[in-house]
Amino acid sequence: MSRIYIFFALILLAAIAAGMVRILRGPTAADRMMVAQLFGTCGVAILLLLAKGLDNMVLLDIALVFSLLAALATMTFVRRTWQGNDGEGADGYPS
């Protein structure tokens, strides 16, 4: 019965993997960074399902840290990388 949770987690993993195409396509750095956001929410859901499926409550704490780290990563990216000069033109597209 608990295998079904792991199956659900695999579906979500496939959703992340498909989202990775956006990293390749871009075009702006923020488009790529959005996949990290996807990783955050999907990752939390995967960890919650695994916590249930493997009956390991430690994964719940990892899920919590994961969500906060994803938010932190996006904020740092916006403040430090994207607002500064990183080889992109004023329009946000690679120059």
Partner: peptide, 18 residues
């Protein structure tokens, strides 16, 4: 976290005149 980072990315995109 996600609504805040969503707003930040959108605002930065606006400032970059995308």
């Amino acid at each position: 976290a996600s609504s805040a980072s969503c707003h930040l990315v959108a605002r930065c995109a606006m400032q970059k005149k995308i």
